[in-house]
Structure formats: C-alpha cells, structure tokens
Design a protein around this nucleic acid. Structure first.
Lengths: 239, 239
DNA sequence: GAGTGGTCTAGACCACGCA
DNA sequence: GCGTGGTCTAGACCACTCT
C-alpha cells in the first residue's frame, strides 16, 4: 500500500481508500458504511468533501445511499461505469469473477491504427497499440484492441500487463483516472479472424463495443475496440 | 412552460432550465455556456449549487467543462447515460434523429410480467405493462417491453404515449426523474416472434438490452426489456 | 493579470428512517 | 427524538487558459 508520490485531492484520496477497502472486503455487503460524520472526523474533512467521495462510490455501484439511514454496501465491485462481465446463466457456470488476461500483441508504437470506430480529433502523433484476450474458465470471451497516445504514458511498453487490469496500471503507475467517455455497441456475426481467436463458429452472434475513454488528463484519451462472445457471459454496467 | 407545482431543489431547477435551453438551441454547440459566476448572479445561487447543475449536464454530455476556459456546449443532446440510437453507416442513411414510436400493447395492469431479466426485490403489487416498437424511416429497430409499478404512476394508462418520450411523460406528468440504474446487454440470434415484429430473418444477430431503471422516487423502479436490430443503426451511450 | 473552473472549509437547516 | 443523508450559503484559495 505504498503511497503514490502525487498529491491527490482529498475527496479522491478518500474515494480510493474506501474503494480499496471495499475490494478487500473490509465492509460486508448489506452493512452500512461509516456515516458521513464519522468519515469527516476520521479523515479531518468537511461534509461536502466526504459526500463527493461517497457520490463517486454510489455512481459506480459500490454503495447505495439512503436518506435517514446511511450508505449500504452493495454486493459487487462493478467496473467504473463501464461494462463488465457476468455469467449468462449463473446457475450453470462456476465463475469466481476471475478473468485471465493474455496479451496477443505487446504494445508497439506507431501511427493511429486502423479498425477503430472512434478516431482522435487529431490523429497525428504516436500511439501505443496492443491486443489482448480475456478468458474465463479457459474460454476466450473478449478480444480487445487498444490504442493510447504514447507521449502521455512514457515507458508503457515496459509495464507488466498480463493478468493485470489496464486501468489499474494506468492508475497506479501514471496516476491516470478514467473520467468517462462514449461507447457504441451493436450485434454482428462472427467473421473469420475472430472465429479463430475465440474458437466459435462462423456467423455466431457476437457483441461489438467501441469506446472512447477520457481521463483526468486533458490530452489522454484512449480507444478500445472490443469483441465479446455473449452466449455464456453477458455484459453488465451501470448508468 | 407551465411550472410544475412541485418544489424542486435549486440545482435541479437550474439543471432543467439549462437542459431545456440547450434542447431549444439557445446556446450554439462549440460556444461557451455562461460562466459559473454569471449563473450564480442570474439565479441568485452560490458556486457549489451552480456547479452541481453543471456537473449533471456534463455527465450527460450536454457540455464539457474546461478549467480556466469554461463550459463548452456539445453538439448533441444524448440520452441521459442510456443508450440511444445512431446510424451504423452515417453516409448511407438519411437520418434526422426522428424516431417514431408505436404502442403494440397499451398499458395494462397486472402482476409483474414474465420475460424480464431484472425482477423487483418484492414482485408483489401491481404493475403497468406495455410493449412498443420504435421506427426509423418506417423500419422497426426497437422492440421494447416495459413494466412499472402501478401505484406510483396513477392514471398512467390515460397518458398519451405515441410518439412521445416515456421519460418525458414521467418527468412532465409525474415529476419523476431517472437517477440511474443497471443494464445487461448481449448479442443473440433472432427467434420467431421477433422475426415477425421486426421483419428480419431467423438467426439474424440482434442486440438484447435489459435495464433496471431507478428514479428520484425511492419506490419507483421500472424495468425494460429491449430487442434492437443493429445492422443499420447502432446504440450509443456515455459513461 | 483577469477570468475561469477545481477544491475545500465551517457552518446551517431540512427530509427521512428508525426505534 | 435522534442520527442519517440532502440541500445550501458565504466565503477562501488554487490551477488552468487566454491575452
């Protein structure tokens, strides 16, 4: 739990602290989080500052706030507003939430790559490009292409990415936090390169999800192009 | 512009005012919104209150805030965090953003209906149930089933729904505002009842989107089950 | 330097839930 | 009635953009 040397706003620091505690299971789902007043005293902050942190947790589904009652811890850590994975038929699959990540194409530097629906406003400049697959129970469920501006993430190719959250690396190594973005989604039939990667039959319905992802750094916007087989797992998100 | 008799928080009133102005085109995309200070003076509010309203507009993509510069009006009114429609191949389709709505099943009252992925925590009580299709250029692109708790929206069956936004009806008639929710999405192959409704071939990949929608009223959560053909139009959203 | 949004404090009062 | 979260004020200082 080594502190990053960068100065975070108080509300973000509290948010990160609570988020990590929630992931560690410090608070049981269904129980109440410490009240706003208790958090104020514990962290020496005022109510609006605490409230901002709690609002972020509520937006992402970690907690639910009830007036007159408190903040109830929710059962799941769900990806920050983005779509995350869940079994299609929960009873039939044993799924401990563990997703393996394999890198198909290690980060290489070049011009903005082809095949993305969203493109940068100014596509000049160099981008890291990588491809990865994500597996559950040794089955490929995601195939994802990612592009991110090289100058904003120095030495990105030296980072370890296997079985790590890309967002986690960005947050811990570069202090980059996802602020929001835009996504487009549609259903399509699997074509040849994909049938090979995912080991599915030609024509199987697959989900395509294209994202433009904005961060707390004004010039760090990155891009994701994702194929998901959703016959056994589906995507879930909050809004 | 008749005022609803209900007392709204200041930040929500300002949000509604600005949102309506943005929809009317009072501010051109690319231009700046009045500064926070100007809004404070115009509406006799303090900075945090104004900021809260602007944050909501930013969350929904109406504006983008830039420190040191101002709030830039964005080109589109995009559905509040929820997925909305857009042409798959913009150049090939003429699309003025107009979506027609037809009611297949007028609101009827009964127990919570079958076929929804999300179900109420307490499914007792009566629900309105309706089905509607949405068309662009006379082609069916959405088929949607909706269930909402009857006791929270009295006389809902008397409301005019054709070619009106359901959310608009809820907002203007019942002062209900969507606060957030949960959604699950996957790709599947069209089966029989759907091929008829949408006039597509058996097995065509279609997108399924199931939503649980929470509002500002604690006991008003409603449910949507949506089928979308995404061969010509795709779904877009913000996060 | 002037103006903007970003963070934060120290209070206040209200609306709601629960016992 | 008490504690909770929800709203709001009146300030303050900082970080950033633009000229």
């Amino acid at each position: 739990m080594s502190d990053t040397p960068v100065r975070l706003p108080h509300y973000q620091h509290l948010y990160e602290t609570l988020r990590q505690q929630l992931h560690k299971g410090v608070y049981e789902p269904g129980n109440l989080l410490p009240s706003e007043k208790e958090l104020q005293q514990a962290y020496n902050l005022t109510q609006p500052t605490v409230r901002q942190a709690l609002s972020m947790l509520a937006d992402e589904g970690y907690i639910k706030k009830y007036q007159g009652k408190g903040s109830v811890v929710q059962p799941l850590p769900i990806g920050s507003g983005m779509l995350s994975i869940e079994p299609q038929f929960p009873s039939e699959v044993l799924f401990d939430g563990k997703i393996q990540t394999e890198i198909l194409q290690k980060p290489i530097v070049g011009n903005f790559p082809e095949g993305f629906l969203f493109v940068p406003a100014n596509p000049s400049g160099l981008f890291y490009y990588l491809e990865r697959i994500r597996l559950v129970n040794n089955e490929v469920i995601f195939y994802e292409k990612i592009a991110l501006p090289a100058q904003e993430v120095p030495d990105f190719h030296k980072q370890k990415l296997e079985n790590r959250s890309l967002f986690g690396v960005l947050r811990s190594r570069y202090n980059v936090i996802v602020k929001g973005g835009e996504e487009k989604v549609w259903a399509t039939a699997a074509t040849l390169p994909l049938t090979d990667i995912m080991r599915i039959e030609l024509g199987t319905p697959v989900l395509r999800l294209e994202k433009r992802i904005e961060t707390n750094r004004p010039h760090l916007t990155f891009y994701s192009s994702l194929y998901a087989r959703t016959d056994m797992y589906l995507l879930q998100g909050r809004f």
